[in-house]
Amino acid sequence: MAHEATLPATLAASSRPVRSATTESHLARLTLIAVSLLFVALFILAPLVLVFAEALRNGTGEFLAALTDSDTLSSIRLTLLVAAISVPLNVVFGIAASWAIAKFEFKGKAFLTTLIDLPFSVSPVVSGLIFVLLFSSHSLLGPWLQSHGIKILFAVPGIVLATVFITFPFVARELIPLMQEQGTADEEAALSLGASGWQTFWYVTLPNIRWGLLYGVLLCNARAMGEFGAVSVVSGHIRGVTNTMPLQVEILYNEYSFVAAFAVAALLALLALVTLVVKSLLEFRYSAQIAASRRH
């Protein structure tokens, strides 16, 4: 009896909590956390905070004035237009590609998936260059386009093409693993109950993939609005006409209009933050559905 009473007492007397064998010492943990946080602070948080600090350095008046400049406004309009065209195109493509790849077994599937991922591994500048080579006046298509008065390069169509190329894999990449995981049982059930192909897609598949799709659209849109390298090569930098927001940032910065440059940059950073917040919320609420496509 006496032994039973003394045992907990000795444990309690050693005051130090018993450390689990599968974690590090308190000191090691604190050090790792501190170093990691410092790294994130220096390389990720500091640039983000700086963008807003520089944009508001001379007060909100100058910030708003910079944003209502007519060239800046037209760059905002162009960016919205380009995203509004290229994101839906890639949504249609992404759904078609993931339907074919995830729901069917066919020869050459792995190769097709690799081809879809290709734009991710091409440098943005090279992505722009391939369209310059295709449509410039030195190219095969160039003279024909010129004689028909069609302008692709240094105009909106070229910017849209480059953006579609850059954002090509985003939606498909989110949807393929998700649809593969969901299998075909739901669709087969719907079809056996007499639904048509389109009904099956609208009422069964689409609701199943909606969060993954939203996630893909979000990432695709962020990239479409923020793309710099590829768009810079094909745009021709015509002020007020072919400058998207990232290009406007570059021009203002190179002209030493730092506050204006950071004001436009702050809008883009805000877009990135909204993207991250919605993305985290989606991951938090629909983690099981999105987990399959977690990797970028």
Partner: peptide, 21 residues
């Protein structure tokens, strides 16, 4: 969540921010 910032932040914005920093 912030680890994904470089994916979401346009590269030109990152460029001028890091330069100023």
């Amino acid at each position: 969540a912030m680890v994904d910032l470089p994916f979401a932040l346009p590269t030109a914005v990152a460029g001028i921010a890091l330069t100023t920093l």
